[in-house]
Design a protein around this nucleic acid. Structure first.
Length: 218
DNA sequence: GCGACAG
DNA sequence: ATCTTGTCGC
């Protein structure tokens, strides 16, 4: 698929933050409500080396539509809030190698629920123009009440007075996941898709597939 | 000022 | 993220 050219690479924390502040203005918080091809993205680390995996699913179909694995190196030190810069080059390359264009990107991490409102899911969404959402496994920014115990129960994540995401229970009695908008998607739709894609396990199927592929490359 | 902080 | 065993439960 076509991906916008990767911007000049930031050489410092300040440059990376400035880039996020600039790109944040391009995020759109509304978009389609139905999606056919859904891509899951994840990265596996081994020291400074990494493996990025993208798996495209057609929910309901027994087999993935397409899978891509890219080997690379960590592209930025780990700084909370700048996490995206570590794996962006490898993920972008993997997306470029796809022969199909997904209708939705399901990212492992956060989107709007981020210190500057521009997490990995926003970044990938803006670079591709494709609707994107982020699913985090642990809390990051903001405060929230523990959601009810049933699948589908959720509570808003509030950061600096604004709702930036939701703590969502995808499995009864299992700790929630943290959903936020990436690009071209509403919070209701992001929540609905996360729930739809995580019917059997806590995490959405596309992310589970990508995680497995990144750990055990074919 | 100090601690906490997606993966 | 990663270093790491067994164990409880569906």
């Amino acid at each position: 698929m076509q991906v916008k050219q990767l911007h000049p690479w930031p050489g410092s924390v300040a440059e990376a933050q400035a880039l996020q502040d600039r790109l944040r203005g391009q995020v759109e918080l509304t978009g389609p409500t139905d999606f056919r091809l859904v891509a899951g993205l994840d990265v596996h680390y081994r020291g400074d080396e990494l493996t990025a995996a993208v798996v495209v699913l057609d929910p309901g179909a027994p087999e993935p539509v397409e899978q891509v694995v890219v080997e690379g190196r960590v592209a930025f030190p780990y700084v909370p809030g700048l996490f995206a810069f570590r794996e962006l080059p490898a993920l972008v390359e993997a997306l470029e190698r796809l022969t199909v264009t997904p209708d939705l990107l399901v990212c492992d991490g956060y989107g709007l629920a981020h210190p500057r409102g521009f997490g990995l899911a926003c970044h990938l969404g803006v670079l591709t123009g494709v609707p994107a959402l982020g699913v985090g496994k642990t809390p990051f920014v903001g405060t929230y009440e523990t959601p009810g115990p049933e699948r589908g129960d959720w509570s808003p994540i509030v950061h600096e007075g604004a709702v930036v995401g939701r703590a969502l229970r995808t499995r009864p009695g299992v700790k929630p996941v943290y959903v936020s908008q990436g690009h071209r998607i509403s919070l209701d739709t992001a929540t609905g898709q996360t729930l739809r894609l995580a019917s059997r396990y806590r995490l959405p199927e596309p992310i589970r597939h990508a995680d497995h592929l990144a750990r055990h490359p074919a």
